[in-house]
Amino acid sequence: MKRVDETVTIQENKRINGKYYKLVFKSARLARGVQAGQFLHVQIRPDAVDPFLRRPFSYYRIQHDRIEVLYEVLGRGTELLAGLGKGSHLKIMGPLGKAFTQQVRGKKRILVAGGVGVPPLVFLAEKNPVDYLLIGTKSRAEVLPKKELSKVRAEILHATNDGSYGVRGFVTALLEKIIQKEGAECLHIQTCGPAPMMNAVMDIAKREGIPGEASMEESMACGVGACLGCMVKTPEGWVPSCIEGPVFSFDRLVRTCA
């Protein structure tokens, strides 16, 4: 299969709240056949060696050939990205990786999102019938603007660490409540976010026997399975999360202490 590495022109790149920036560009080839959970591998400054490696970002929203990415400024690469204006160029490989299971039959679906794991799960919830979308953030300032969530066909519940929006505490408290209400047997979980959050979600899922998927976030170099740098531990050993994931079924993930 022919793979895409395309130079795109930024159409929009601006801050949308206390946490995220939204990046918008057009590419028919990078948009073709994409499903939530897949990612783009972005060379932020195509003609410079700083940042040196590409950075992976999830697809957030696609409308025809228009692609949106939501990102958080965490370090040098995302800081440089945030400084780029309309008309700047990026070099992007994609779509890469395996998507979330889109259709889950006979189960109530819960999505548990936090941090940079929010964008792919909002994408999933916009495209598929989902029952709950649980979002955990530090405070109100980080909660996505209502407009960004208007196309989600699910009950959206927020948890903030400081209680400034939704319930106070961790998103896992919301998850426990839903399990009590619905009963574990009929549930299916999909999660993406910081490792401690996903670990807590998977601990609950394991205790309750709830199946599901987690999207892992490992630093990447190649994005195509060549460098063996982005590994996730499975019963068969370390596998590259860029091609075998980033989405993995809970039962394929072996916990390593981090």
């Binding site: 940042p51 040196f52 490696l53 490992e218 630093s219 170099a221 460098c227 063996l228 740098g229 982005c230 590994m231 531990k233 050993g237 370390w238 390593t256 981090a258």
Partner: peptide, 10 residues
Amino acid sequence: EGNPMPRICE
């Protein structure tokens, strides 16, 4: 099997 993670950094 290879080394534990993380294995790479820029």
